[in-house]
Amino acid sequence: MSDYILVLISAALVNHLCLQRQPIRRLHLHALGLACALCITLGVIGAQMLMRGVLSPLQAQDLGLFLLLPWFALLAWGVPWLLAKWRPAWPVAELPALLLSNATALGLALQQASDDSTWLAVLRQAMLAGGGFWLALVLFADLRQRSAHADIPNVLRGLPIELLGAGVMAMAFSGFNGLFTQ
């Protein structure tokens, strides 16, 4: 359940701190979501290769963070560059700064490094986490758009209503906890 809460709070903070423009264009939101999903998926797979191929034989798993931070920084600059080459009309100019603030990929990579999961399980969890983060960004953008026009007290506007929404979504997603276990 704590994984859901961390993903939702990370999405709420990225949405609030980095996507301040009102209203957020849908193309920009989905370009960010796709870039985050790609960064999370590629980052976790690459982190697994670094941890199992480089650090495990050297018995230096504690140095994983020092290898993973440059790897995710490289992805934060490389994925928007690839998206700009693939779709030149997409707004990817400010994506590297947003992707550097995404702690979901690093947290998932560190969690996967401590598990002895198979490559297929790692790939599945990375793709689901990337898609879940994309979904959370879209949900928080919709929450922000709806709360701008609703009769909400001024004290709750902005980050407080988003964190309340994150709590409600975490409770809803906790219902899925243990659903796919054997």
Rank of each mutant, 00 (worst) to 15 (best):
T118M: 07
W90Q: 01
L17Q: 13
W71Q: 01
L98E: 08
A73T: 10
Q125K: 09
I40S: 03
L68A: 04
M169L: 14
L159H: 07
C36M: 07
G78K: 03
P88Q: 04
L69A: 11
L58P: 04
V168T: 10
L128C: 12
L75Q: 05
V14I: 15
G64L: 00
P88K: 04
L67M: 08
A136W: 03
C18F: 14
Q145P: 05
H149T: 11
M49D: 09
L32C: 00
V155Y: 11
S114T: 12
S147E: 09
V138D: 07
G132W: 03
D142T: 08
F72S: 06
M127I: 11
A126F: 01
A97Y: 11
V155H: 12
Q111C: 12
A166L: 03
F66G: 03
S56N: 11
A109E: 00
S117T: 08
L164P: 01
A47I: 00
L55N: 03
Q182D: 12
Q59F: 08
I9V: 15
L159Q: 08
L164D: 03
F180Q: 09
L58H: 08
A113V: 01
L19M: 14
S101W: 08
A47C: 10
A84R: 07
A150P: 08
T118A: 14
I152G: 03
L32G: 00
R146Q: 14
A129I: 05
V92G: 02
P91V: 02
A172S: 11
S2G: 09
V122M: 06
A12F: 04
L38E: 01
M49P: 04
R124G: 14
L6W: 12
A150M: 11
T118S: 15
L123A: 15
L69K: 04
V14D: 01
G165L: 00
A148H: 13
F66L: 12
S117D: 12
T104G: 07
G165T: 06
A73D: 10
N15T: 13
G78D: 04
G158W: 02
D116P: 03
A97G: 15
E94A: 14
W90N: 00
G131R: 02
Q20G: 15
H28S: 15
L83K: 05
G158Q: 05
F66Q: 06
Q61D: 11
L139H: 05
G131L: 06
Q61M: 10
L120Q: 12
R21Q: 15
L106H: 04
T41C: 07
G165K: 05
M51K: 02
A60V: 02
G53W: 05
L98R: 08
L156F: 15
A170T: 11
V79M: 00
L143H: 02
L82A: 15
G78E: 03
S101I: 07
L34Y: 04
S10A: 15
L69Q: 08
A166W: 04
W134S: 00
L120K: 09
L8K: 01
V44M: 01
W134H: 06
Q125N: 09
W77H: 12
A141F: 05
M1C: 11
L67I: 06
P70D: 05
W86G: 02
S117R: 09
S101V: 12
G175I: 03
S147I: 02
A113P: 02
R124W: 12
H16W: 10
G165V: 00
A170K: 05
A121K: 09
F72A: 02
A113F: 06
W81R: 10
L74T: 07
M51Y: 12
D62E: 11
H28Q: 15
F72M: 04
L27T: 14
F140N: 03
A121T: 13
